[in-house]
Design a protein around this nucleic acid. Structure first.
Length: 416
RNA sequence: GUGGGCGUAGCCCAGUGGUUAAGGCGCCAGGUUGUGGCCCUGGAGAUCGUGGGUUCAAAUCCCACCGCUCACCCCA
C-alpha cells in the first residue's frame, strides 16, 4: 500500500476545520493591515535560495533539489521570503508607491527528520513589507503577527526581539565574538567549534549546558550596534511599547537565515516541554539587492500553520466546525428516487446544501446516514408521496414531521 | 545527520513462543409491514509495518529496512 511520503501528511476534513479557521483569520487581518495576497510557485530556480544562507547551511542542504527535463536545476520552495522578493523584482513592484505589503500562505519543503512541529512539507503564513526602512513597519509586522496568533485564541504568547545590526556594524560584533570565543575554543561543544568557524552568531543559540557559561560572558550585540541601528532598534521598541505589545529583549536571539539585518523576532507559546516558535521574522535590508535589485529595505514574518494547530490543540481552543449539509433526501422506490434527484438539484440551486440518498438502502439506514451527517432536516419521498406530489419533512432534532407539497419543500427549508 | 521509544483491522488497544489473534469505537444488516439518535442481535473487516533469520512451532526472540514518535541539530 502507498503511504504519504515521510514528513508529509494528508489533511482530513476534521483537521481542515483548523485550517479554515486559521486562514479566515489570516485573510481578514492581512487585508485589515493593508497586505495583499501574492502566491509564488512551489518550485523556483535553485539559485534563488542560494542567497538566503551560506553554502554549508542546513537549510541549503535540506532543500529538495531536482532537475527538470530540460536540465534546469530547481528547488521546492524552502521558505517564502526569497520568492516574494523575486516576484517583487520580476513584476517591477518597486514602481508602485512604497512600501509594498504582501502576504501568502504557501507550502514550504525541507528534507529534515520529522518530529512534532517539523515536517518535510509544512505551510507558512508570511507577511512582507518591502521598500521602506521605517521602524514603524517593524513594529507593524510584529503587531500583525502577534494579533493574528492571539486572535486565534492562543494565550501565553511571548515575543522576543533583538537587533543583529547591519553590514556596517555586524562584522565588528562578529569579530569581537570570535575573539572572545577563541579563548574558550577547547571547551566548546563540537557543534560550537563548527559554528565558530562558519556562523559565529549562532554560537549564542547553543543549548549545550557546557556552553551556557561561555555564552553568558559573551559580548552582547547591542553594545556593538552602529548609531543608525541603535536608533532604529530603539524606535522599534518605542513603537511596540506605544502599541501595547509586550516583548522581551533577547540578545541571544539570532536567526538562521542569512538575509536578516537589524530587527529579528520570534513568538513562542508558553508552556512546558519544548517551546517551538510559532512564527518569526525580521528585517532583511540586503536581500533584494543581493537578488539583483536596487538596495531595498524590507521586513516580514512567517508563521507555521501546522505549529499553530498544535498549539491550538494543546490549549484546547475550540474551532468552528465545517458547515454541515442542511437536508438529506431519502426515498423509497424508483419513481421516488427520480423525484428525490430533482428535489436535491433544486435545493442546491437555491443554495441549500443537500445530500441525496444513493444506493438501495432501507429507509432505516437512510435515516441512520442522515443522522450521522448531522443534518437539520430529512425529506422522505415514498410511493404515496410521489402519487400525491408531496414529501415528508422531518425535523431531525425534534423528530417532528409533516407532509407538505413537494413544490414547497425548497421554500420551507430556505426560511429556516 | 545523531540518539531513545514504538509499529496488531479505518481508530483505540489485549495478547511476550504453541490449536480458528481477544475486546471497544466506528462501519454494515436485522429487531415484521415506509423512519435516525439509546438498547439488543448478527456480520464484514488483520498478509500481526516489510524482508530475512533462530525454532518442531513466532504477533511474541534476533537482524535489516521502512514508518511513526520524542530529544538533539535546525527551523515555521
Amino acid at each position: 500500500m502507498f503511504k504519504a511520503p515521510r514528513g508529509t501528511s494528508d489533511i482530513l476534513p476534521q483537521e481542515k476545520a483548523y485550517w479554515r479557521y486559521i486562514e479566515e483569520k489570516a485573510v481578514y487581518l492581512c487585508q485589515l493591515y493593508g497586505y495583499q495576497p501574492l502566491n509564488t510557485p512551489v518550485f523556483e530556480d535553485y539559485q534563488l535560495f542560494a542567497h538566503i544562507a551560506p553554502d554549508g547551511a542546513d537549510i541549503i542542504k535540506e532543500m529538495y533539489v531536482f532537475e527538470d527535463r530540460s536540465g534546469q536545476k530547481l528547488a521546492l520552495t524552502a521558505e517564502g521570503t526569497a520568492p516574494i522578493c523575486r516576484a517583487y523584482l520580476e513584476h517591477g513592484l518597486f514602481n508602485l508607491p512604497q512600501p509594498i505589503k504582501l502576504y501568502y500562505i504557501i507550502p514550504a519543503f525541507r528534507y529534515e527528520r520529522p518530529q512534532a512541529g517539523r515536517y518535510r512539507q509544512h505551510h507558512q503564513l508570511g507577511c512582507e513589507a518591502i521598500g521602506d526602512a521605517d521602524p514603524a513597519l517593524d513594529a507593524e509586522v510584529i503587531e500583525l503577527m502577534y494579533r493574528f496568533l492571539s486572535s486565534l485564541g492562543l494565550s501565553g504568547l511571548f515575543i522576543e526581539i533583538n537587533s543583529i545590526g547591519c553590514r556596517q556594524c555586524q562584522p565588528d560584533y562578529v569579530e569581537a565574538l570570535k575573539k572572545y570565543y577563541s579563548a574558550y575554543r577547547d571547551r566548546l561543544c563540537p557543534a560550537c567549534k563548527i559554528r565558530l568557524a562558519r556562523n559565529p552568531l549562532r554560537l549564542l543559540d547553543c543549548k549545550e549546558v557546557s556552553c551556557q557559561e561561555i555564552i553568558t560572558g559573551a559580548p552582547k550585540i547591542t553594545g556593538y550596534l552602529c548609531s543608525e541601528c541603535q536608533t532604529h532598534f530603539q524606535s522599534v521598541q518605542k513603537y511596540l511599547t506605544e502599541l501595547g505589545i509586550s516583548y522581551q529583549l533577547n540578545h541571544r536571539l539570532v536567526r538562521g537565515l542569512d538575509y536578516y539585518t537589524r530587527t529579528v523576532f520570534e513568538v513562542k507559546p508558553e508552556g512546558k516541554g519544548v517551546q517551538i516558535a510559532l512564527g518569526g521574522g525580521g528585517r532583511y535590508d540586503n536581500l533584494i539587492e543581493e537578488l539583483g535589485g536596487k538596495p531595498t529595505p524590507a521586513v516580514g514574518f512567517a508563521a507555521g500553520i501546522e505549529r499553530i494547530i498544535i498549539a491550538l490543540k494543546n490549549q484546547n481552543v475550540i474551532v468552528p466546525t465545517l458547515p454541515k449539509p442542511v437536508a438529506y433526501v431519502a426515498c423509497l422506490g424508483t419513481q421516488a428516487k427520480l423525484e428525490a434527484t430533482k428535489l436535491v438539484s433544486r435545493l442546491r440551486h437555491q443554495g441549500i446544501a443537500a445530500i441525496q440518498a444513493t444506493g438501495d438502502k432501507s429507509l432505516k439506514s437512510q435515516l441512520r446516514q442522515a443522522n450521522s451527517l448531522d443534518v437539520k432536516y430529512t425529506v422522505i419521498i415514498g410511493e404515496k408521496e410521489v402519487a400525491n406530489e408531496t414529501a415528508v419533512l422531518r425535523d431531525m432534532s425534534s423528530g417532528e414531521q409533516k407532509t407538505v407539497p413537494l413544490s414547497e419543500i425548497a421554500s420551507l427549508l430556505e426560511k429556516r
